[in-house]
Write a protein that binds this DNA or RNA. Structure first.
Length: 284
DNA sequence: AACTTCACCAACCGCCTCGTT
DNA sequence: CAACGAGGCGGTTGGTGAAGT
């Protein structure tokens, strides 16, 4: 049974015949070089044949994965930018676990990277909230707590690094307009308030607005439009694909727009989490 | 300093789709 | 039209380093 043998077989060559065997496990520098040089000369595709011709003792699948996820020259390194995180949240809300489809709209990011991000970061937050990451409640929470923080993060970054390229990506972060507090919310002048972001419209069409697909052209205007991108056909507090009216639990949280000064990677603060959990229990 | 726990991510696995024969 | 193989995709695993005790 392969599954029973797996732990033993890990990182060991797979016997394939009398004179050939396949390697598995981490790639060596030599293998990377072989693969890179071969693709530079002959291009991608026909991965099984490529593996053989390049002299690699790997499966075609393994070569393809290594190339697409690691060796390809346009792969971006470093943490996902707030823009990219926002986009992932939005696209996942629309398409679910269609990682490759989501990755198509994040240049330089791989489906594997996005999938890992979702599983390690997003699902962790969902666990803290004690709700399913795929549920509507989590999506509501993300929109109301997480997205404002990401947007605020953008704003803070841009104000401290004005026109200085983002350290972890090639993009230049925009400066944002001051966001007025929501008219229907209690505003606390001692606290920094922020409007819940509009749900960036992503229609069924494959093409996305340029400001979402290309961080380099993330202009003030387009970002502002993203904030207030009310569907022209919607009424008052409704947006395409999303209605604040359906968000009673979250909507009623007073002071939930407080921004944490220690807003680092943890994009919820514990108050948010407990408030959201309490409200969820009240609902039940 | 030693040990444990946690988070991240590269890599693998199995299933599915599509093109070719 | 069925069989087959290659490539693509999403789910899962396990190694490794960082953080915590």
């Amino acid at each position: 049974m392969e599954t029973a043998m797996a732990p033993i077989m890990k990182n060991m060559p797979i016997p394939m015949g009398e004179d050939s065997e396949l390697r598995r496990g981490p790639w060596t520098l030599e293998e990377d070089t072989l693969l890179t040089h071969y693709i530079a000369r002959h291009g991608e595709g026909r991965w099984n044949m490529l593996a053989k011709c390049a002299g690699l003792k790997r499966t075609g699948k393994s070569c393809r994965l290594r190339w697409l996820n690691y060796l390809k020259p346009d792969i971006k390194r470093g943490n996902l930018t707030p823009q990219e995180q926002l986009l992932i949240l939005e696209l996942h809300s629309k398409w679910g676990n269609r990682w490759s489809k989501i990755a198509q709209h994040l240049p330089g990011r791989t489906d594997n990277e996005i999938k890992n991000y979702w599983r390690t970061r997003v699902q962790k937050q969902a666990r803290l909230l004690n709700i399913e990451s795929s549920s509507k409640r989590f999506l509501d929470a993300a929109r109301c707590f997480w997205m404002p923080r990401l947007l605020q993060k953008l704003e803070q970054t841009s104000s401290t690094q004005s026109s200085v390229p983002c350290q972890l990506s090639d993009c230049t972060l925009p400066s944002l307009p001051t966001i007025p507090p929501p008219a229907n919310k209690t505003t606390d002048t001692t606290q920094q308030s922020i409007n819940p972001p509009d749900f960036i419209n992503i229609s069924d069409q494959t093409e996305l607005p340029q400001h979402l697909t290309s961080p380099n052209v993330y202009s003030n205007q387009t970002l502002e439009q993203s904030y207030y991108n009310m569907d022209s056909t919607s009424t008052g507090n409704e947006m395409e694909g999303f209605s604040f009216a359906s968000m009673s639990a979250v909507d009623s949280i007073e002071g939930s727009w407080i921004m944490s000064n220690e807003m680092t990677e943890n994009l919820w603060n514990m108050d948010d989490i407990w408030q959201f959990r309490d409200l969820g229990e009240m609902d039940n």
